[in-house]
């Protein structure tokens, strides 16, 4: 028992060092002024950071934008990924080829492709704009229009992650025993019934897990936005992580940057807790309704 705990300890200490310690530090910093104004020395400031945080319109706008990005990209990824996985779920040749090509977008560094997208969506020289011009006769300022720029970032994220999500869901589909379908077909169930009564309920744990992980990741989107749009135009694609980054490294206001991080952490925890309850309820209901 003691040996077991000793073996566990180093890993846990390292994790505490990068997860627990920073959060504790943020919490402490969020009650201090620590910026160029104070000569980068932490001075208690009576919750002024939190006051500013709650009334910081830019933060709440960024939160809205981040959630908009997360919901749009994750929804698209799951729907497209599910459709692809269902279509691919048959024994076929070229499995290795599909796997490799699906993994490449996911495995490439985000920053590498983010700059690639800047070139592809470039106005006027990028291929997307040229194509648009030749069809509609006027140019498309994909990265310069606030209403289009965020969709462009969503597209880049969907490109990177959809094949990957499809691959995970495909692996989930392959765990469903085929005799379930055979039994259902003997009972006279059609393809749609099979999908609704067998595939989706049994795939639900995978979908739920993919949803939670992707949402949490999209909530912290940083690399893609920073390199692709820099948060622009007019802050319309700025995410909360990028805003915290600006506060720390451009405005050198560590106290407020820490407040943003711990505040965002609290918001994220609450959202995950709500999602957890919803998924747990859905799962319980699906167990009751599942064919036995």
């Amino acid at each position: 028992m003691t040996t077991l705990l000793l073996l566990l300890l180093p890993s846990m200490l390292f994790m505490a060092g990068v997860f627990a310690l920073p959060l504790a530090r943020y919490l402490w910093l969020s009650f201090h002024a620590d910026s160029v104004m104070t000569g980068l020395v932490a001075i208690p400031n009576d919750g002024a950071n939190w006051n500013r945080f709650l009334n910081d319109l830019r933060y709440w706008q960024d939160l809205g934008q981040t959630l908009r990005f997360a919901v749009a990209s994750v929804t698209l990824e799951l729907l497209l990924g599910l459709a692809i996985a269902l279509l691919l779920n048959q024994p076929q040749r070229g499995r290795a080829l599909i796997r490799t090509t699906s993994l490449i977008p996911w495995a490439l560094p985000t920053t590498v492709m983010a700059l690639g997208w800047r070139w592809i969506f470039n106005t006027p020289y990028g291929p997307v704009n040229r194509l648009f011009e030749s069809v509609f006769g006027h140019s498309l300022n994909a990265l310069g229009e606030p209403s289009l720029a965020w969709l462009t970032t969503v597209y880049a994220d969907v490109w990177k992650t959809t094949p990957f999500v499809a691959l995970i869901l495909l692996a989930g589909l392959q765990t469903i025993p085929s005799d379930l379908y055979e039994a259902a077909r003997l009972e006279g169930a059609g393809a749609l019934t099979c999908l609704k009564k067998i595939t989706l309920p049994l795939l639900l744990p995978y979908l739920g897990l993919a949803l939670m992980f992707r949402m949490a990741q999209a909530f912290g989107v940083f690399d893609l936005i920073q390199v692709m749009t820099g948060g622009g135009p007019a802050s319309s694609t700025e995410s909360i992580a990028l805003y915290a980054y600006w506060n720390a490294l451009r405005f050198l206001d560590f106290g407020y940057s820490a407040t943003i991080m711990i505040g965002s952490f609290i918001i994220l925890t609450m959202m995950v807790a709500i999602a957890w309850v919803v998924i747990a309820t859905a799962r319980r209901r699906s167990v009751v309704g599942a064919p036995s």
Binding site: P22, A216, G220, A244, A248, M261, F265
Partner: peptide, 16 residues
């Protein structure tokens, strides 16, 4: 829980 955590939020403390 830790695997879910968007680690980008940790960069400031790690920088310190």
């Amino acid at each position: 829980g830790c695997a879910l955590f968007p680690y980008v939020l940790l960069f400031l403390a790690l920088l310190e």
